Simulated scan of single mutants.
Amino acid sequence: MAYRILFVCLGNICRSPSAEGVLRVRAAERGVALEIDSAGTGDWHVGEPPYGPMQRAARTRGYDLSRLRARQVAAEDFHRFDLIIAMDPSNLENLERLRPAQGGAELRLFTDYAPGSGATEVPDPYYTRDFDGTLELIERAAEGLLDVLSR
C-alpha cells in the first residue's frame, strides 16, 4: 500500500495543487509509490482548476496541473491520509481545529521538509505574484520530504 499524503492551503488553487504536481513528478523519478492529493481549508474555489498563472509557471518547470480541481478538506481526509501537510501555520491551525477526535493523520508544515531555507511558510503567489519563488520552495520541500520517506 502506498503512503498517502494530502497537501493543504487556503483555496487549493496555487500552493497545494503545485505541491501535489511537483511531488507526483519527483516521486515517480525516484520510484517512490505515493498516493497524493490536495485540498483547501476554504470552499471558494471548489471545482475550479489551479490558478492560470500558477499553472503556466508550473508548466515551464515540467509540471502539468491542468487536470487538478480544487476541493475542500473533509473529515474523512484525516482517516484516508497518513500525512496532511499545510502550506502555512494558519492552515495548520485550521486543520487542527477541523481534525476529528479520532483523526489519525499526522499534521505537518511543508517547510519542515526544507531545512536551511529560512522559510516558515510557503508564500501564497496569488498575493505575492512570485510563482517561481513559490515553486522553488515547493521543489526543495518535496525533495526533503522524499528524503525522509526514503529512510
Rank of each mutant, 00 (worst) to 15 (best):
P100M: 04
Y51E: 13
A86K: 07
A33Q: 13
N91H: 06
R71C: 13
D88T: 00
A142N: 10
V32A: 13
A28P: 00
I85R: 05
P100L: 06
F110M: 15
E121Q: 12
R61F: 10
R71Q: 11
A70S: 14
V122Y: 03
V73M: 01
M1P: 01
Q72E: 11
G47A: 09
L109E: 05
D124R: 08
A74Q: 15
A57H: 05
D64W: 09
I5N: 02
M54F: 03
L135S: 10
E106M: 09
A119N: 14
L34E: 06
L146Y: 04
A119I: 10
R67F: 13
L23M: 13
T111W: 05
E76V: 11
V8Q: 04
F110R: 01
L145S: 03
L6V: 06
A2Q: 08
L68H: 10
D130L: 01
D82A: 12
F7I: 04
A75D: 14
V25C: 10
H45P: 06
R151Q: 09
L145A: 08
M1D: 07
G47T: 14
S66W: 09
A74T: 15
L23S: 03
L145V: 09
D130C: 10
P17Q: 14
M54E: 08
E136H: 13
L98N: 11
E143G: 01
G40N: 01
E35A: 13
A74W: 02
I84D: 02
G104N: 05
F110S: 03
C14S: 00
T128D: 05
E139W: 00
M87H: 08
L23H: 04
V8G: 01
V22T: 05
A70E: 10
Q55T: 11
R151I: 13
G144M: 02
R140K: 15
